[in-house]
């Protein structure tokens, strides 16, 4: 009986110690050190470096989830749009990459959480985009095939219309034949006394 009671106390102590250790870990706040270009051109790929550390000890946190997002509005609905996501490496560094389509200056929210955590902490980061106003830009990665372009379409169109015009020579010839025939008839009538 005593032995069983001793075992029960031991298990209870171990479990509660583990639980308190775990909750202590969860309670630790994280800090993020974000480095990003302050100014990018519309259409460029933005690369953001995020170092995630424990707030208390400053130790780097591997495996933390880092998400970049920004506020957006579409069709009258406001929301947050995720633009990039990454996980910190063993040095606690995550690299976020996205192509900056928007021409506006904007604040990107960088949110981060340790592995297994569901609650994210966040830090705002300002990204200034220059270039094309609010227009969405064309991707630079388009495939350009030498010799192909709008001129092919223009040449095709010109060719088709030239053939249609060529066909129109037919009615003109019909009309000329009639005129020639009338001229001959007229001349023949004049010759007849």
């Amino acid at each position: 009986m005593k032995g069983a009671l001793r075992w029960l106390i031991l298990v209870t102590v171990v479990v509660s110690s583990l639980a308190s250790a775990s909750s202590a870990a969860r309670a630790d706040h994280l800090d993020a050190e974000v480095s990003a270009p302050q100014t990018v051109a519309a259409g460029e790929v933005v690369q953001m470096r995020v170092v995630v550390r424990l707030a208390d000890s400053g130790a780097r946190v591997p495996g933390a989830v880092v998400v970049a997002s920004r506020d957006a509005s579409m069709l009258g609905i406001d929301g947050t749009v995720e633009i990039a996501r990454s996980i910190t490496d063993r040095n606690g560094i995550a690299i976020l990459r996205w192509r900056e389509h928007s021409g506006r200056s904007d604040t990107v929210i960088v949110a981060y959480a340790a592995a297994g955590e569901v609650e994210f902490e966040s830090v705002p980061e300002s990204v200034v985009t220059e270039g094309l106003g609010s227009q969405i830009v064309r991707s630079n990665n388009g495939v350009r095939i030498p010799g192909l372009g709008a001129w092919v379409l223009i040449a095709l169109l010109v060719g088709v219309w030239a053939i249609i015009q060529f066909a129109m020579i037919g009615p003109i010839q019909v009309s000329r034949e009639a005129e020639a025939s009338r001229t001959i008839d007229h001349a023949g009538q004049e010759q007849v006394p």
Binding site: A167, M168, I169, G170, P171, Q173, V174, S175, E177, A178, E179, S181, R182
Partner: peptide
């Protein structure tokens, strides 16, 4: 357009068509 069924007219029309 002055159609009279002349051989030249028939030829021109047939080619256009």
């Amino acid at each position: 357009i002055g159609w009279e069924g002349l051989p030249g007219q028939v030829k021109a029309l047939s080619r256009a068509v």
